[in-house]
Simulated assay, not measured.
Amino acid sequence: MTEILTPQDIARRTAAAAEAAVAAGRELGLTVTDARVLYELFSVVVHLAPSPVVARIPTVLSRHVSLDSLAHRQRAELDVARWLAGQGVPVIPPSPLVPAEPVRRDGFSMTFWQFVEEDRDKRTDYAANAAITADLHAALRTYPGELSFLSAVEPEFIEEGLATLAESPDLVDPADLDRARREWQVLAPLVRSRATFEERFPHIDLQPIHGDSPPANVFSGVDGDLYSDFELVTLGPVEWDLAQLGPELEAAYDQQARANGMRPLDEDVLRFVNAVGMLRIIAALTLVPQLPALRGYLTPTIEQWRTTAFAGGLAG
């Protein structure tokens, strides 16, 4: 059986991440006397009060992610967020009080962001967030930095995950794993090669995109909504940012995209990104030992996946 972290284990991990953030913040010259954890799931987010700085410390990571590769990803995130803020785009920016660089401390790699007070009374409107994702895409089109093609898919994560699950029958139904492995054989070439993707979808333009479901990563600040969490920023089709979100949110995006003079979402590419997104969800079962609550989020989606066309209907 796979060893599952207990609530006590997770509490110790959270405390260690928070302590590392406090120590790193003080070394950077911040006054930190009343730090508090604001949020924890895949990362621990700590307000280094009274300084107006938030540290984000990723704590639930797959085995293929090293501190070096994590820092590389974090540098891209910091650069994109800083650039967007400079363009006047509503985004949570890196903290101006410390260098915009990831900091390594006590086995963690962390980044520092400007503290923004949350509007806790506002209910999340995912359709509205999908619409403003089109505005984000419009802004990102001119981002000058270099980004890798579909790095947000993390093909190493999928491949490592499917291999690990073969040794963890308590985490996955063998029939599901067999289907996932066969689907990956179909989809992997389109993920790993920009040329192969463009040959299959010659009419689709590629651009910088958020990479991690921006409609779910709009922060409700007291002074307005802000884009956040660009940890998986990548070059790809805009459809990737709407993967697994369904017709209602797709329609909300399309309406705003047309208003911006941009193309609507492409049905063929949506099938592709939805199929790839499902394989990431299957692979995410390997993270359940680190984050047991994750199983409850993944199981309903996997059950729905069993009813869908093999590899999004792209195998033919």
Score class of each variant (00 low, 15 high):
residue 2 T to N: 05
residue 3 E to N: 10
residue 6 T to D: 00
residue 7 P to F: 00
residue 10 I to M: 00
residue 16 A to C: 04
residue 23 A to M: 10
residue 26 R to Y: 09
residue 28 L to W: 05
residue 37 V to P: 06
residue 39 Y to N: 14
residue 41 L to V: 13
residue 42 F to E: 11
residue 45 V to N: 08
residue 59 T to D: 02
residue 60 V to C: 10
residue 64 H to N: 15
residue 64 H to M: 10
residue 72 H to N: 13
residue 79 D to E: 13
residue 83 W to M: 07
residue 84 L to V: 02
residue 84 L to W: 01
residue 86 G to Y: 14
residue 92 I to P: 02
residue 98 V to W: 01
residue 99 P to D: 07
residue 100 A to M: 02
residue 106 D to S: 14
residue 119 D to H: 03
residue 120 R to Y: 10
residue 126 Y to A: 10
residue 128 A to G: 08
residue 132 I to L: 14
residue 132 I to G: 07
residue 136 L to K: 01
residue 136 L to A: 00
residue 140 L to K: 00
residue 140 L to C: 01
residue 141 R to V: 13
residue 144 P to A: 13
residue 149 F to G: 00
residue 154 E to H: 13
residue 155 P to E: 05
residue 156 E to H: 10
residue 164 T to L: 14
residue 170 D to F: 04
residue 170 D to W: 07
residue 171 L to F: 01
residue 176 D to Q: 14
residue 177 L to F: 01
residue 191 V to Q: 00
residue 192 R to K: 09
residue 197 F to D: 04
residue 208 P to C: 09
residue 210 H to L: 01
residue 221 G to Y: 01
residue 223 D to V: 08
residue 225 D to Q: 13
residue 226 L to D: 03
residue 228 S to E: 04
residue 230 F to M: 07
residue 247 P to V: 09
residue 251 A to K: 09
residue 255 Q to Y: 09
residue 257 A to S: 09
residue 257 A to I: 05
residue 259 A to P: 06
residue 262 M to G: 07
residue 264 P to Q: 05
residue 281 I to S: 12
residue 282 I to C: 14
residue 289 P to T: 03
residue 291 L to T: 04
residue 296 G to C: 03
residue 303 E to T: 12
residue 305 W to M: 07
residue 307 T to R: 15
residue 308 T to S: 11
residue 310 F to S: 01
residue 314 L to Q: 07
residue 316 G to L: 02
